[in-house]
């Protein structure tokens, strides 16, 4: 492998590995998610023809591998993965931030799988709606609808509406 190619891939790793692990943790426990991400990078490095857009390619590879691993039953079940995720928070933040990272992670885990996937890809993956549609094999409109629904659900989970003292109910 050429040195500049190695440095380029190293840059991709430093930039995207954390978000990819977060993406894979929707289906897998943290250790399995890291294995899947590592395998995706190995696949990218050993590709005969490098993809034109490595970033969406990596997310697609992680999704494919994670779903395959889930289907073959080699990994722990989804419920166990969620339990492991609760033990290990998937998001980090500073104390000064408005949102609590642990609460945000739990709220994210409680979303509908389609909404959670789109929000993860959009917010932490930084992908365009078209790229998300290609990865999830849905239309852009569906992606947008899931994104809005997911944000609304997160707002409800993170900021429950305060009861109005003047309201009768």
């Amino acid at each position: 492998m050429e040195p500049n190619r190695i440095s380029e891939l190293g840059g991709w790793f430093e930039q995207e590995a954390d978000a990819l692990v977060l993406y894979a943790r929707q289906w897998l426990d943290p250790h399995a998610a890291e294995d899947v991400v590592q395998d995706a990078f190995i696949d990218l490095m050993n590709c005969r023809r490098q993809p034109d857009h490595p970033k969406p390619w990596l997310y697609q590879a992680v999704r494919f591998r994670a779903l395959k691993s889930l289907r073959t039953g080699q990994r722990r079940s989804r419920r166990e993965a969620l339990a492991a995720g609760e033990a290990e928070p998937c998001l980090e933040g500073t104390a000064a931030q408005a949102l609590d990272a642990r609460e945000a992670g739990l709220a994210l885990a409680g979303l509908d799988p389609g909404e959670r996937e789109v929000i993860t890809l959009r917010i932490w993956g930084g992908l365009k709606l078209e790229e998300i549609a290609a990865i999830t094999e849905t239309s852009v409109a569906t992606v947008f609808r899931r994104y809005r629904d997911g944000l609304a659900e997160l707002r409800n989970l993170l900021e429950p509406p305060t009861s109005c003292p003047t309201c009768p109910h």
């Binding site: 190695i6 891939l9 790793f13 933040g93 949102l99 990272a101 707002r155």
Partner: peptide, 24 residues
């Protein structure tokens, strides 16, 4: 809300670049 969520970062992974390069 999008901006506030974006302020959070994914948890730091335990895999490192050199190990991945070696395996590759």
């Amino acid at each position: 809300l999008e901006a506030r969520l974006g302020g959070l970062s994914p948890a730091r992974r335990r895999i490192n670049r050199d190990e991945t390069m070696f395996r590759a």
